[in-house]
Design a protein around this nucleic acid. Structure first.
Lengths: 105, 105
DNA sequence: GTTACATATTGACGGACGTCAATATATTGA
DNA sequence: TCAATATATTGACGTCCGTCAATATGTAAC
């Protein structure tokens, strides 16, 4: 996915709110609809499909419900690509992916 | 600037082409227009104003020309914020800004 | 199968945005 | 001041996109 596609995918307030809900959490569509009040179910479904096509969410079906969670690895890849292209003098993201920054366990 | 504003600012192909031209380079508007062929001067001016209002470019006037260059530090800040929000389990961008990753001199 | 529930798709609407031609503003040099 | 050049602004146009109501599809329990 290109940096432009990535940027378009996250360039919406409700989509970022959904991303935040799905960050470190598996939620089904209805959970998202409830926590996002003021947004209809079809709209949430639409936003989720945008995020899905951009590869920014994981999807898992369980019975009647479909669960989503944020794909943090893809976020790292996309942000890393942005940094490599647009901040080459500030980081060494070029060859050393950001993902290697260790997380304390 | 919010993550949504940032995403909107970079969510356009021509704008990213301009950003790439301005990365590590000071160019005046006409230089950008020439290197971007197929895009009119007013359109380039418009895109530059979007980037300027987002704080993503440095601006300097020299005589009749206005020179722009990409604000790499702001790119680092914005990408860092994205990572902090949407990839907290993959990086430690939270308190240690990406900018600290040393660049070999 | 039928009913109930969860999610996705369709179609329509309105607003946001990228684009350009035309024009305005700003700066320099004569 | 006037002409020339560089950039910004305005206004209009078409397209893209977020939104919802209505409907379709899919899944499970009976």
């Amino acid at each position: 996915m290109s940096s432009v596609t990535f940027a378009k995918a996250i360039a919406d307030e409700n989509r970022q709110r959904i991303m935040h809900l799905l960050c470190c959490n598996w939620l089904c569509v209805n959970d998202v609809v409830e926590q996002l009040d003021g947004v209809s179910q079809p709209t949430v479904s639409h936003h989720l499909s945008v995020l899905r096509e951009a590869g920014l969410v994981h999807v898992r079906r369980d019975g009647r419900q479909v669960y989503y969670s944020l794909n943090q690895d893809e976020m790292v890849v996309c942000c890393g690509r942005l940094m490599k292209r647009f901040a080459p003098e500030r980081t060494q993201v070029a060859d050393v992916p950001l993902a290697l920054i260790p997380v304390e366990s």
